[in-house]
Design a protein around this nucleic acid. Structure first.
Length: 587
RNA sequence: GGGGCCGUAGCUCAAUUGGUUAGAGUACCAGACUGUCGAUCUGGACGUUGCGGGUUCGAGUCCCGUCGGCCUCGCCA
């Protein structure tokens, strides 16, 4: 073992430490060899300190220092000195001092790294993930993970302070129908049977409420075997909580307090609470989605009732077949070229829109190749309804509701970015409330739960359950930040009868319900308190708070889009013996 | 499962309509240099153009397939 013992880290030393003898350890960030004197930037996760090797001060160490290369791990002993006038580095926290080394020990050499350990490097993600231990050395990544740690600490303190207790729930659990595809783990002891990794601890936390553990929370890993996105990993982390004897406003208030605490203690900003609330219906009407970005306006307008008086077949056909025509006013975009509009058309095409009708607003009125299909008074009504001014561009999608909503929702956000309508440092929170309990699935040919099957209907909507299920509203709420769904929750069903009614409506008969969720239905029979909760995506939240658009930047060891890990090369083949013990065969 | 973009030196990229020996920056190696901090200067080394096939007198460039990465639709209670 080294005779050196570290006395401080690479970000600590200041002018007040001048002339004290210290020992630093860390990685060689860069070497500047001037022949007579060698400068080393020594890095650890706390910062960088300049170390000077001078032949006049310590010739032996100076000679050894010639061997130093990037990423060598070394320890040095030396005396802290004020930097000579004119050589102060204002970019370093330790820039007013340097350490004159008298002793150098090389703990380990390093091969030349496959990429430089610097911020702002635009190395491919694949290479970064393959050598994640090098990537994570970058100050930027260390900042992300430290930030994440601090947010999680605030979460724990906050919930602890309010009397919540942290309880772990199983990772090996039971596969449940509905929802995402499960990751499965075959059981060796029970051949032919499998565990599933939890998509969330939903049922366990409800059982904990029945057990009387009011106020539970957990920072917990969840697993969903679906295709990946920049915002979606197969395993991700939720801050999960559940409470008894509460209603929606209790949960929302506590979460608002949590967010406020995170902003105050970690982000260093104050955030206004309570957050605004928007009904699901309004959100769909004005923004075409249930996770609207409210940092800019540009609301969607329904013009079906106006354009049905026109002669434009595309619009008329859409309306006739039960669809609609809605539009957005791209304010000030009247100067868009044909090519730009074509690009927008192509853009909405990926959401199923068969076209994008447009009018440019000029002094003389609406101008477009389709103007001839619209009587002047209709054009005027459109212009008025859309509050269109000279220089604006009106964009229309005509189709069934889902296509129109989705196309315009994405188009709205696209234009918001394209036209710099979005303040990149704003944090805009909104609650979406009054969700329907069910929606009809064309694929499954049945009703499916919009939230999940344990969400309580509103008391006054109970009579609607069997008669008009699509009109029944859920006691659910989603928290949206800058157009991204952070998470959601609900007041749960605590009555076994209502839970059975909901299962039946979802096409899950009593036998099936007992087979899949028997333990929950049983638990509800033994004095289940009214309860509810919420879960928020931690990775997404951290990424948004750091203004990052890829959650892999805040996860230490994330997966690629094909759900592989370039570093460990997971998933991998296993020894045939392992498979035999499990009683399974692959491929 | 569908659509799109990409793959050239360790890294980031370039290479005219298919045309001579595939370049640059950086990293790396060697030498010089006692105040640099993106050190500088001089020199050097580094390529199965992801892989396989095809078209062609000739392919980094065109075609087909395949592997990998990214974005996206579907999917994600």
């Amino acid at each position: 073992m080294s005779k050196l013992k570290r006395t401080c880290t690479c970000g600590q030393l200041r002018l007040k430490d001048v002339s004290s003898t210290i020992v630093l350890m860390g990685w060689v960030d860069s070497v500047r060899d001037h022949g007579g004197v060698i400068f080393i930037d020594l890095r650890d996760r706390d910062g960088i300190t300049q170390v000077v090797f001078n032949p006049d001060a310590a010739n032996k160490s100076y000679e050894l220092a010639h061997q130093l290369r990037s990423e060598y791990v070394i320890g040095i002993r030396g005396k802290v000195a004020a930097r000579p006038a004119g050589t102060i580095n204002p970019d370093l926290a330790t820039g007013e001092i340097e350490v004159i080394a008298d002793e150098l020990e090389i703990f380990n050499k390093s091969e030349t790294p496959p990429f430089e350990i610097i911020d702002n490097s635009n190395v491919s993600l694949e290479l970064r993930l393959k050598h994640r231990y090098l990537d994570l050395r970058r100050p930027e990544m260390q900042k992300h993970l430290v930030f994440r740690h601090k947010v999680c600490q605030v979460m724990r303190e906050y919930f602890d302070g309010l009397g919540f207790i942290d309880i772990e729930t199983p990772v090996l659990t039971k596969s449940t129908p509905e929802g995402a595809r499960d990751y499965l783990v075959p059981s060796r002891v029970n051949q032919g049977k499998v565990y599933a990794l939890p998509q969330s601890p939903q049922l366990f936390k409800q059982v904990l409420m029945v057990a009387g553990y009011d106020r539970y929370f957990q920072i917990v890993r969840c697993f969903r075997d679906e295709d990946l996105r920049a915002q979606r990993q197969p395993e991700f982390t939720q801050i999960d909580m559940e409470m008894s004897f509460v209603d929606e406003s209790d949960i929302m208030q506590i979460i608002e307090g949590l967010i406020a605490a995170i902003f105050e203690k970690v982000v260093g900003k104050t955030i206004n609470t309570p957050f605004p609330r928007l009904s699901y219906r309004e959100s769909m009407v004005y923004y075409g989605c249930d996770a609207p970005d409210l940092r800019f306006d540009m609301k969607i307008q329904d013009v079906s009732y106006i354009v049905k008086e026109s002669n434009f077949k595309v619009f008329l056909d859409a309306i006739k077949s039960g669809g609609q025509v809605r539009a957005i006013n791209a304010t000030g975009c009247g100067n868009y070229s044909r090519k730009e509009i074509d690009e927008l058309t192509e853009f909405v095409g990926q959401f199923g829109a068969k076209g994008l009708a447009w009018f440019k607003v000029e002094e003389t009125g609406l101008v477009s190749s389709i103007t001839k299909f619209f009587p002047p008074e209709i054009l005027q009504k459109i212009q008025q309804h859309m509050n269109a001014k000279t220089g604006d561009l009106l964009l229309f999608v005509a189709d069934k509701e889902k296509v129109v909503s989705q196309s315009l929702a994405h188009l709205r956000v696209h234009l918001g970015h394209k036209n710099n309508l979005i303040d990149p440092v704003e944090f805009n929170f909104v609650w979406i409330v009054d969700f329907p309990l069910f929606e009809y699935s064309e694929d499954a040919k049945r009703y499916v739960a919009l939230h999940h099957p344990f969400t309580s209907p509103r008391q006054e909507d109970l009579p609607l359950l069997e008669e008009k299920p699509l009109e029944a509203r859920a006691r659910a709420y989603d928290l949206v930040l800058n157009g991204v769904e952070l998470g959601g929750g609900s007041i749960r069903i605590h009555s076994p009868e209502i839970q059975k009614r909901v299962f039946r409506l979802l096409g899950i008969n009593d036998d099936e319900a007992y087979q899949k969720f028997g333990f929950l239905l049983d638990a509800l029979k033994y004095g289940a308190p009214p309860h509810g909760g919420i879960a928020l995506g931690v990775d997404r939240m951290i990424a948004l708070l750091l203004h990052l658009d890829d959650i892999r930047e805040v996860i230490a060891f994330p997966k690629t889009q094909k759900a592989t890990c370039p570093m460990t090369e997971a998933p991998s083949e296993v020894d045939p013996q392992q498979l035999r013990e499990l009683g399974i065969r692959l491929g």
